[in-house]
């Protein structure tokens, strides 16, 4: 899992496939966690993932990791 925190306390996960990103967003939404799919930031993130990233509030990072892990989304 790769994440970075920017100045606005927004965490960012590089995603393996866009479908996984959609699935993750849907799972998080079901747990009332707001997330957004955004374009990859930089060449490295683009090479390691699918060209997209998932962003969400860092305050919910632990919960996000748990939900995605339990759903078998291990590619994050």
């Amino acid at each position: 899992m790769r994440n970075r925190m920017n100045q606005r306390q927004e965490c960012r996960l590089t995603v393996g496939t866009l479908t996984d990103a959609m699935r993750a967003q849907s799972l998080l939404s079901a747990s009332a966690i707001r997330s957004e799919i955004v374009g990859a930031d930089g060449v490295r993130e683009r090479r390691e993932g699918c060209g997209y990233a998932l962003t969400f509030s860092c305050l919910q990072e632990g919960q996000v990791r748990r939900i995605l892990r339990e759903a078998g989304l291990r590619r994050f």
């Binding site: 866009l18 374009g39 990859a40 699918c50 060209g51 997209y52």
Partner: peptide
């Protein structure tokens, strides 16, 4: 748009 072919 083309799905999965850009972040726009």
């Amino acid at each position: 748009g083309n799905p999965g072919r850009g972040s726009h």
